[in-house]
Amino acid sequence: MSRAWLVVLVVGAASIAFKAAGPVVLGGRALPGLVTRVVALLAPTLLAALVVVSTFATGRELVLDARIAGVGAAAVAVALRAPILVVVAVAAVTAALVRTF
């Protein structure tokens, strides 16, 4: 089986289980506040890590290239509250232009 299919099956099964766990297994019981506070920080933490790694890393090397210009332009678009498609397009076009010239 390909790596992609393994990711799809394992992550898919885990996501279905996470979503169903609350309503089916735990009923109406609440998670301890401590757990909730830690879980709440997972999304911002991992997304920030994904931003910097996909901007600066190529394999195991830190590389400064056209992606930085693209992400910089995207940051401006995000600050201006642009829709997500605009943010992505701005980043891609900027990086492509920097590479061309």
């Binding site: 992606r67 210009a69 997500i84």
Partner: peptide
Amino acid sequence: GLDAAFPALFLALL
């Protein structure tokens, strides 16, 4: 420039 699309998306989500 699609390699710049991933970080841009994560930034928007963040």
